[in-house]
Design a protein around this nucleic acid. Structure first.
Lengths: 154, 154
DNA sequence: TGACATTAGTTTTTTTTGAAACTAATTTCC
DNA sequence: GGAAATTAGTTTCAAAAAAAACTAATGTCA
């Protein structure tokens, strides 16, 4: 009458993707705390500010390519940032579908405020890791990412 | 007439939280590919299946504590899983607010199907990393997570 | 014991996000 | 030169998630 209880054993607390998730949430939460409390920007708006920076000028599509966000999210965030006066949209003379995006003076000032804070937090996150360990961590994450690419998009 | 262009320099491609984000997205996408195509479960439902496992019985609140999801998401996912016949809800005799959750036979069968697949994918993600490197990666993520805890909830 | 606080979980409302369809501009190539 | 295909970006619509308010049950302590 004994039921077969032979299942694959599985421990969530050591399951790698789970560890990655709680790691990611800790890190991203730690950064979003800053730009949220400091400016009220949401994650997509923040990411656009950051890929743009004080010098660069990019199209919406280039931002998509450099931010791992999708078209729609980027388009909406651009609208918000424009309304808030943080970026300027200049329609391209040659190709009138393209819009060149640039931080305004006000946007640059916000960038200047935020960047030192998030860089400081970045260092705090890496506290207690030697530079060799930091290098390793980044390298290992990159390796895993390469593996994911190979096994997913068949 | 020269404008002051002395801004903090910042490179997104080496910004640690950005690297963590694309790393996380690669890993979680790689796993969700599997349970999505194999079962149609969404991430919250999958996570509950996994924390529960074939033996354990937990309350909704315990699942919240063990899954880094919030109350509402868990409550809704439980409803879906119950409707789908994958988990059973037993109201606690002593405390009638509590509901003990358990996988049904059908839920266990799905678990038995999925776990070997995701464990295989886990290994594929870690392909090319020595066991020493795997240990290091996990340990370094844990360190960063500890740091995040210290600096965030002031 | 009985008002007040707490806890478990759900429902409602609002905000975010993502997928699909769409518009407008440009390219391709016959 | 102009129909067909492609590209950039937006809008619309549907699904997911987060926040807030709520219900029901239990605990506390005067």
């Amino acid at each position: 009458m004994a039921v077969d209880r032979r299942h694959d054993d599985f421990d969530l607390q050591t399951f790698f993707p789970y560890l990655v998730r709680i790691f990611y949430r800790a890190v991203s939460g730690s950064i979003s705390d800053i730009y949220l409390s400091e400016t009220g920007l949401g994650p997509p708006e923040w990411r656009i500010m950051v890929v743009l920076g004080p010098y660069r000028s990019m199209s919406a599509g280039e931002i998509v390519d450099n931010s791992s966000m999708d078209k729609v999210t980027v388009s909406r965030a651009i609208k918000k940032l424009t309304t808030a006066g943080l970026i300027r949209r200049d329609i391209d003379g040659n190709d009138r579908r393209r819009v060149a995006l640039k931080l305004t003076q006000e946007g640059i000032e916000m960038w200047d405020l935020l960047i030192p804070l998030v860089k400081e937090r970045e260092q705090q996150l890496l506290d207690g890791l030697s530079s060799e360990e930091r290098r390793q961590l980044v390298e290992l994450m990159a390796k895993v990412r390469t593996n994911a690419g190979r096994f997913s998009e068949q």
